[in-house]
Amino acid sequence: MLLQIKNLHVSINGKEILRGINLEVNKGEVHAIMGPNGTGKSTLANVIAGKEGYEITQGEILYNGKDIQKMPPEVRAQEGIFLGFQYPVEIPGVSMTNFMRTSLNEIRKYHGQEPIPAKEFLARMAEKKELVEITAKLTNRSVNEGFSGGEKKKNEIYQMAMLEPQLAILDETDSGLDIDALRIVANGVNKLKTSENATVVITHYQRLLDYIVPDFVHVLFEGKVVLSGGKELALELEEKGYDWIKKETEKR
């Protein structure tokens, strides 16, 4: 099992956001986590990636069977966890090329590998750019600086393509995208899928799932996974709306 989350409780400044999450992700699977705003979707993504400011009060996160709670974020990344950010930050003056090379080489170093030869690196960049239909110019610019919303999201998928993570968590990658960008992003994700990796797509809308077909859909509500099912669950959700979830939960 690639990722196993057991009874995870998380608080921010003493306020409980996640209230007992259980989730199991195997290699070769695509999972979608859906739910209304403010139910803890991004919190879950950030906690898996190791962002500061979250307190795990109960439960555990196992990645490849290892408890990663004490692992610094960069080590989690080096171990193969990738987070596609909802709001990618700008880093002025640092070119995408330099950023990616630094990133790739730090990950290689962790695995005892030599830095990637320049020629190989450039070839890889060219190949992956094509995958997400990114123009050459974008990679010469500073990280996310002056990128449009769509370009930023494409850039996240591009980085995922470059780093080839084992577990990719895409946090609202579809938000703010027009249909074309959405198709490109989804295409990228689909093409990167192998039997050795897994993707967790976090989304508010069913729309993205027209392009990325999940093996499992989980509905997150008030800090808990309240419903899990196959891809048809997403359609049902789309049809009935999140109010249906609220009512279902209240019934219990």
Binding site: E74, V89, F99, E106, S142
Partner: peptide, 24 residues
Amino acid sequence: FYCQQRGISQESAVGLIVNGYAKE
């Protein structure tokens, strides 16, 4: 955090960001 999430340690990240800032 963005840099760290890409496998870059905090210290290397500071170096990277500072060099970007001073690039001009």
